[in-house]
Each structure stands twice: as C-alpha cells, then as structure tokens.
Simulated scan of single mutants.
Amino acid sequence: MFYPFELERYLEELLPAREGLLQEMEGVALEETIPVVTPAVGHFLELMVKMTDAKRILEIGTAIGYSTVYLARGAAETGGRVYTLDMNRGRLNRAEEYLKKAGLAHLVDFSCENALHCLPKLTETYDLIFVDAAKGEYLDYLDLITPLISPGGVLVADNVLFRGWVVPGSVFDQKYDRMVGCMRDFLQNLACLPEFEVSVLPFGDGIALARKNK
C-alpha cells in the first residue's frame, strides 16, 4: 500500500456497500494470497467504464474475476462487453463461476492465453483497457496495447507505484530490482507517448490513467 492502510480503509467506507459476493471474493483472495484490486480501485474501474461510455473493454489479468465484476457492472449500463484474458486456467474457471453468480457472465468473454501471445493477434480496438497482470511485463505490453486503444479511449494500469518503490532512493529487497525497474520504465515510456494524456493516481498501489487523443 503506497499510503497508510488507515487511509485505504477510510476511503472504502465512503464507497457504496459491497454485496456478499464481492466480500466473499475478497475473503478468498486474502486467504489464498491471490492478487486482486482494492475495492476503491474496483469502484474506480466501474465508474470509468460508465463515464467514458465504454462499449469494448479489454482486461489483461483476470485472476478470480474480482475486477472483472466491476468492469462488467459498468458494461451492463453502457451496453458494452468485457474481453478478459489470463493464462491461469484454474483461476479463469473460478472467475467464470463468480461472474455467473453475479449474473454478469453473459457480458464477458473469457480467454486462457498469455497476453504477450494474444495481444498481437487482436484486430479490433477497445474503448477501455485495464492492465493488472505480470508487473515485469508491463513495458512489453505497452507497444502492443497502444494501437488497440480507440481514439478517445482509456488505458488503466494497476500497481504502477509498486508499494512506492518506484520512487528513486526507495529501499527494497534486491529480488524486486527487475520488477521495480520495469515499472519505472513503463511509467516513463507511457508519460512520453505523444498521442496520450497521462496521469498517475496514488491510491491502491498506484493507478496509471492514460487517454488517447481523438
């Protein structure tokens, strides 16, 4: 958490009450140490889908479908659809079951693929792309993602502050050197893209928000 845990809890209290299914998923993720977005980030994703009126939504990194639920809830209002991919078949199957329980599975297409192999094969563009997958691959995703974003479309990437360690001078275990370096490079390259307007939001573990110029 980049900012104090107490602040995160306070922000959660300002959100609409989460139904039992989301709370169940949060418990499973905590118990099994499955990385999912925070409730504040999930709410932000749903809001972004609605605010941008996104119809075509791509999610890279499904896990058990926690963020997918929020994206699909937004898509239910915009008349949109979510295409989500993850290379872990077991987690993807669980995500499908959760989306069925949520009554949202009809709005989601699930794909069990490695993003680096899948993205070059995609031919349509998307109004919103959400990235929450292998942190060491974010920079690799960037060149593959940018052509897939519609003019006026939005890219949202989670965990970009990486526990605050992207800040120069931060102290962390040497085993994270590569991932921290990759995330710094990702942010630097994203910020320099001439056709995008970029902002980094310091909640959750850091959100990068980029809008492609029309």
Rank of each mutant, 00 (worst) to 15 (best):
G181V: 05
D177F: 10
T78W: 11
E24M: 07
N213P: 03
F186Q: 01
T62W: 05
A191T: 14
G204R: 06
L142F: 10
G181E: 14
V180C: 11
A54L: 09
E97A: 14
A210D: 08
V167S: 05
D109Y: 01
S199D: 12
A75V: 01
S111T: 07
V36K: 08
V108W: 05
R9A: 14
V82G: 02
M1E: 09
Y70W: 15
K50A: 13
K121F: 00
F196G: 08
E46D: 00
I207K: 04
F44Y: 14
F130E: 00
A157N: 07
P35V: 00
T123N: 09
I129N: 08
M183Q: 09
K50N: 09
G42W: 04
G152W: 11
L21Q: 11
A133R: 05
E59A: 03
E124T: 13
A134D: 15
A191C: 14
D109I: 04
A133C: 09
R94P: 07
E26I: 06
G204I: 03
D205A: 06
D127Q: 11
T38C: 07
V166K: 00
I60E: 01
M1V: 11
E137P: 04
M183G: 03
L122M: 12
E32K: 15
D132H: 01
F196D: 10
Y98E: 11
T78L: 10
G152E: 12
F110S: 06
G136C: 06
D109P: 03
A191I: 01
D177E: 12
M48A: 13
V160L: 12
V36Y: 06
V156F: 05
E13S: 15
P168V: 08
E197N: 07
A210C: 13
E59F: 08
V41K: 06
H106V: 01
P120V: 04
T62L: 06
K121A: 06
V41I: 14
N88L: 08
D185K: 09
P147A: 01
M87T: 01
L209E: 10
A72T: 02
A102M: 08
F162I: 02
E137L: 13
L14M: 11
F186I: 02
T33V: 12
A134T: 09
S111M: 05
C182A: 13
K50T: 13
V37W: 07
T78A: 10
T123M: 11
K100F: 07
C118E: 02
V154P: 00
L144C: 03
G181L: 07
R211I: 12
W165Y: 15
L190G: 01
V154A: 03
E124L: 14
G152H: 11
